[in-house]
C-alpha cells in the first residue's frame, strides 16, 4: 500500500469516518428491513422513483432556503402518498406512471440546480451520495427511524405477511389493507429521504432492493429472510464504506458494488441448494 493511502486503523480513528460507518450501518439495515417488505409488495420501482424525485425535494429546499434534509422529509412523504393515490386511480400501469413521474422530476430538478446550485454540494454528490458529509442530526434521525421501523414491522408482522401474500385473504382476516399500505409507503418515503445524503439519488433503490433480493434467494423462512436482508444491508454498507475509504472510491457506488457481490454469491449458493429444497416438498407426499 502506498504511503498516502490510509490504513484501516487510521481511517477508523477519523470522526467523520466513524459517523459515515454508523450512517452506513443504519441506512443499510433500514434499506434491508423495509426492502424485505417492499420487494414482496412489488414496490422496488416505487422506491426508485421516490429516490429520483427526491432531487426535486432538495431543489425546493434550496429555493425556499431550508436545510435540504429537513425539506426532503415532508416532500418525500407527501410525494409518496400522492403517487400511490395516483397509481390506484390511474388507468395507466404503475411502472409507466412511475417512469413519467421520476424522469420528469429528475429533469426539472437538474435544470433548476444548474441555475441555482445547492450550497456545499455538487450535483455529483447529490446524485451519488456523500456519506462523509453525514451529520450527527442525520444519524439521530436515522437511528430514530430504525427504531420506529423495527417496532412497526415487528408489531404488524402477521399483517405484513398476509398483505404480501394475498390482499383479499388478508382483508378477510380483518387487515385494514389501505391503512397499512399507506403507513408502509410513508415509512419507505422517510427511509429514502433520510438515506439520500449518504447514498445519493440514483442508487438509493439498490439499498432497498439488493439485500432483500439476495436474502430471498437464501432464506427458508420469513423471519430468516427479514433478518438476513437487514444483516446483508448493514454489512454490505459497512464493507463498501471501508473499501471506499481505503481505496478512495465514491461511497454510494462502492456500497452498491459490495451489495452486488453479495447478490451474486447468493445466486450461486441458491443454485447449489435448490435440489435439496425440492426434496422436502416431495417427501411430504409420501405421508399420504
Amino acid at each position: 500500500m502506498s504511503a498516502e493511502a490510509p490504513t484501516l486503523l487510521v481511517l477508523l480513528a477519523l470522526p467523520f469516518m466513524q459517523r459515515a460507518l454508523l450512517a452506513g450501518l443504519l441506512t443499510g439495515a433500514l434499506g434491508g428491513l423495509l426492502g424485505s417488505v417492499a420487494v414482496l409488495r412489488q414496490l422496488s420501482f416505487f422506491s426508485d422513483a421516490l429516490g429520483h424525485s427526491a432531487l426535486l425535494g432538495l431543489t425546493l429546499g434550496v429555493i425556499l432556503g431550508i436545510n435540504p434534509t429537513l425539506a426532503l422529509i415532508p416532500f418525500a412523504v407527501l410525494f409518496a402518498l400522492l403517487v400511490s393515490r395516483l397509481i390506484e386511480r390511474s388507468r395507466l400501469s404503475a411502472d409507466a406512471l412511475l417512469n413519467i413521474i421520476y424522469s420528469s422530476s429528475l429533469a426539472i430538478a437538474v435544470v433548476a440546480l444548474s441555475r441555482m446550485p445547492v450550497p456545499g454540494a455538487s450535483l455529483e454528490q447529490l446524485l451519488f451520495g456523500d456519506i462523509l458529509a453525514v451529520s450527527w442530526l442525520d444519524l439521530a434521525l436515522l437511528a430514530g427511524l430504525l427504531v420506529a421501523s423495527v417496532l412497526y414491522l415487528g408489531l404488524t408482522r402477521r399483517r405484513q405477511i398476509l398483505l404480501s401474500l394475498d390482499e383479499p385473504l388478508a382483508r378477510s382476516r380483518g387487515v385494514a389493507a389501505e391503512r397499512d399500505r399507506l403507513l408502509f409507503v410513508v415509512l419507505l418515503a422517510l427511509v429514502v429521504a433520510l438515506s439520500i445524503k449518504a447514498v445519493g439519488v440514483l442508487l438509493i433503490s439498490a439499498f432497498v432492493v439488493m439485500p432483500a433480493s439476495a436474502a430471498r434467494l437464501l432464506s427458508r423462512s420469513f423471519n430468516a429472510y427479514v433478518l438476513l436482508a437487514c444483516g446483508l444491508g448493514a454489512g454490505g454498507a459497512v464493507l463498501g464504506l471501508l473499501a471506499s475509504g481505503l481505496f478512495n472510491l465514491p461511497s454510494g457506488p462502492a456500497v452498491v458494488i459490495v451489495q452486488l457481490l453479495d447478490f451474486l454469491a447468493a445466486l450461486a449458493a441458491a443454485a447449489g441448494g435448490r435440489s435439496g429444497a425440492a426434496a422436502i416438498a416431495s417427501s411430504g407426499d409420501r405421508g399420504r
Partner: peptide, 30 residues
C-alpha cells in the same frame, strides 16, 4: 374480530405465493 376469527375464506389463487419465503408452518400459524 371475534366473529371474523370464526370465518375462513380461501381465495382461488394467492397473488404472491412464489415471491414470499414463507414456510408451511409459518403460513398456517397466520
Amino acid at each position: 374480530a371475534a366473529v371474523r376469527d370464526q370465518i375462513a375464506y380461501l381465495p382461488q389463487q394467492f397473488a404472491a405465493k412464489g415471491r414470499l419465503p414463507l414456510t408451511v408452518a409459518e403460513f398456517v400459524a397466520l
